[in-house]
């Protein structure tokens, strides 16, 4: 960062959604003026508010480097990670920060993600070995090409931005949704795994891939290029194949 990037004394207006269930009857926006620098993130602005202006503001954060997935926020209406979104994108205009859409607000910028975690728990998100192997036998062989088949889907940081972006999830919380489908696909596409049949019912249910209306906004907001829409599309194909093969082959389709 060059020195010329900072304008001493500059500031920016940050509006933050407040909601404290014990005292506020409904959410409202509160405005703060915080110091501006070109390399300051929205998360750093929130930290400044909490440390120096109003310690009662609550939000989740930890790693600051877009890998822990804690600080998903609506920033000027778009789901983003606070730590990897910079004030420079809005300056000299104001920044409006809210909790992620489509999740119940617990307080201020903190949302309840139990629905997401519950869905993760039910998709069997672990290797169900195709061929069990003991540790003495060493690692499974997996070529870089086989790795590439699932690697991008394993990069999901569980930030839930894609759920805040998904119009279908907004309408129907039962919808399995983008990130979880990507993770389900991550295991199905892993050469070590043989658990497709166990996951099929979830994937192919009405609330599974068929719930998706193909808006693809999920992939646009994903900070890690996981491309959940791609996972969903691949599985719509697989699901359709599975449906037809059911009539010709007992036991359904295999990978």
């Amino acid at each position: 960062m060059a020195e010329g990037d900072r304008s001493p004394g500059a500031s920016i207006e940050v509006e933050v959604l407040r909601y404290r269930p014990e005292q506020d009857s409904e959410p409202f926006y509160q405005s703060f003026t915080v110091p501006y620098a070109e390399d300051l993130s929205v998360l750093q602005a929130l930290q400044h508010i909490k440390d120096d202006l109003d310690s009662t503001l609550s939000f989740r954060w930890s790693c600051r480097m877009a890998i822990c997935g804690s600080c998903g926020l609506m920033i000027n209406g778009i789901p983003k990670l606070g730590c990897r979104t910079f004030l420079r994108e809005y300056y000299p205009g104001r920044v409006r920060v809210g909790p992620l859409n489509h999740f119940p607000i617990e307080r201020d910028l903190v949302v309840d993600i139990e629905d997401f975690v519950g869905k993760l728990e039910k998709i069997h998100p672990y290797i169900i070995p195709r061929e069990p192997r003991t540790l003495d036998q060493g690692e499974y062989l997996q070529t870089p090409r086989q790795l590439q088949r699932y690697l991008q889907f394993s990069n999901c940081i569980n930030c839930t931005l894609c759920y805040a972006a998904c119009p279908q999830y907004g309408l129907d919380p039962a919808f399995l949704g983008p990130g979880i489908t990507a993770l389900l696909h991550r295991y199905n596409a892993d050469s070590r795994d043989g658990g497709q049949a166990k996951r099929a019912a979830i994937m192919h249910a009405e609330d599974g891939v068929w719930g998706c209306t193909a808006v693809s906004y999920c992939s646009e907001v994903c900070p890690k290029a996981v491309d959940p829409a791609n996972a969903i599309n691949q599985n719509k194909m697989a699901s359709a194949m599975d449906y037809f093969l059911r009539f010709v082959k007992p036991g359904g389709a295999r990978k």
Binding site: R60, M65, C68, G69, S70, I157, N158
Partner: peptide, 10 residues
Amino acid sequence: VYPMRSHTVA
């Protein structure tokens, strides 16, 4: 924190 937020992540 939720387990996947733990600092091993970094």
